[in-house]
Amino acid sequence: MIKEILTPFARAILLIALQLLVLNNIELGGYINPYLYILVILLLPTDLPGWLQLIISFFTGFIIDLYSVTPGMHTFASVALGYFRFTLLKYMAPREGYNKKLTPSAQELGLAWYFRYTLILTTIHHTILFFIESFSFQNFFQTLLRIILSIAFTELCIIIFEYFRGTARSSQLSN
């Protein structure tokens, strides 16, 4: 039980630290800003009540906002992400439903499913976030380019993270 709570919690701390300490400092022409912290929300257990998911999303975004001094931006995008994830999971549910206490993963639901799932939600999150950041449609195509590049980079990070998670889990299983 404790492990079940602690593992997501530790993962969240790891991801947020990674975001704040490393990824926030990446500057690739101002066009690529990966936001890996959304994995905290994406990897929440599926059987968590909806309101709790929303609250967790809210605080995740809030913490990121606090430390990157962009009050409201990530909070807004994260809450939206949490809500859409809740809805999307219903539509993308396997025929027999999710296993209890399941955290979405490529290993259990397939890489294709996992890729689709993360890509859709990353797109939603990044679109909202970058448009809130520019807060106008004046440089629409520039913003769009930033969104696409950042989605690609974030998605790459997510797949790499998933790879490490998979190997860690399989080594755990083999032990």
Partner: peptide, 27 residues
């Protein structure tokens, strides 16, 4: 309840956004 909480949190985030970011505020 899900949607209401969602709206409330988003409203809160939005208020935070436009109150504490000079650029977004002016826009």
């Amino acid at each position: 309840h899900m949607f209401i909480i969602f709206l409330a949190l988003e409203t809160f985030a939005f208020l935070m956004l436009i109150n504490h970011n000079p650029y977004q505020k002016s826009k």
